[in-house]
Design a protein around this nucleic acid. Structure first.
Lengths: 152, 152
DNA sequence: GGGCTTTTGACCTTCCCTGACCTATTATAG
DNA sequence: CTATAATAGGTCAGGGAAGGTCAAAAGCCC
């Protein structure tokens, strides 16, 4: 559909990232290339290259200034998954729900993903006697979080 | 046999779908073409291109906004969930993966959701003896699909 | 007339893009 | 060394361009 300016710039930056795994650019230069206001670049960064979408940006002002965009893995989720796995202990329904809710609130999971997980981990669904039920829940949750952290 | 405006617009969109399997349109443009209120387009979408009838619509607002309608030949999520539940029988891993993949391909699930489900439903994760394992997988999948269908 | 579907219009939310102004960093003149 | 100029990025409010919602009016068919 009709490519907006923001979309075009997004692609440009994504292409750079594809090439080198990191995109260095100068705001005014890119703005001139696309014949737009420099702040448009900030708009693209703010709406498309957010931490929530797995990017971090660093920049420097003044002479020789630049903007650098890099893909950031999502360390939180793998770390959480590892913690769950290591503990080797089970996870109660309420505990799981709290973890999922926190991940949702901080943007690591979408609202829909959070809802799916919460529903799936309900005791009536797992339907096992108690020591095993919580263990299964822990495994499922760990796998889900790990899986969610793989790319986007 | 009176052809209402809504019917005409429905045919128009169906024709577009026939051509390319996907219909992209701009609301105001189509409204002008049929000399009607823009919200009339929404009415047609809401009454004729519903998930129940096998369509998904996505849209973007603001400059460069558009509406996209795609046919998803795949069974609707709640229906699938109900089928899984009713059958009362288990679901093998390969079967589950295929279902999830189809849902992903037709846009009912995001790529990430599909990956999460596939991973969660792996036999090593469920880790139960065989009649129960497939039954648990069926329950999990049904709940997940149902949950995913609950709004966006 | 009663109950359905269709159609419209007023109002809302979201997204794009810019311009004016601000802050940080470096270069340079005195 | 310090003050100032030059350079570069950051922020924010606001206007315009879409699409979304909802209730009320208008048709239509018993």
């Amino acid at each position: 559909m009709s490519l907006t300016l923001a979309d075009a710039i997004e692609r440009h930056i994504l292409a750079l990232l594809q090439e080198c795994g990191q995109a260095d650019l100068q705001r005014v230069v890119l703005a001139r290339q696309y014949d737009c206001a420099p702040s448009q670049i900030n708009y693209v960064l703010a709406t498309r290259f957010t931490p929530e979408r797995g990017f971090v940006t660093v920049s420097r002002r003044g002479g020789g200034g630049y903007i650098r965009i890099v893909r950031s893995g999502q360390p939180e989720l793998p770390r959480l998954a590892a913690a769950l796995r290591q503990s080797g202990t089970g996870v109660a329904q309420a505990e799981a729900a709290a973890i999922v809710a926190r991940c949702g609130a901080s943007g690591w999971l979408t609202e829909r993903e959070a809802r799916m997980l919460t529903d799936m981990l309900h005791r009536d669904v797992l339907d096992l006697p108690l020591p095993q039920r919580d263990l299964l829940r822990a495994r499922l949750l760990a796998v889900a979080l790990l899986s969610a952290s793989q790319g986007r």
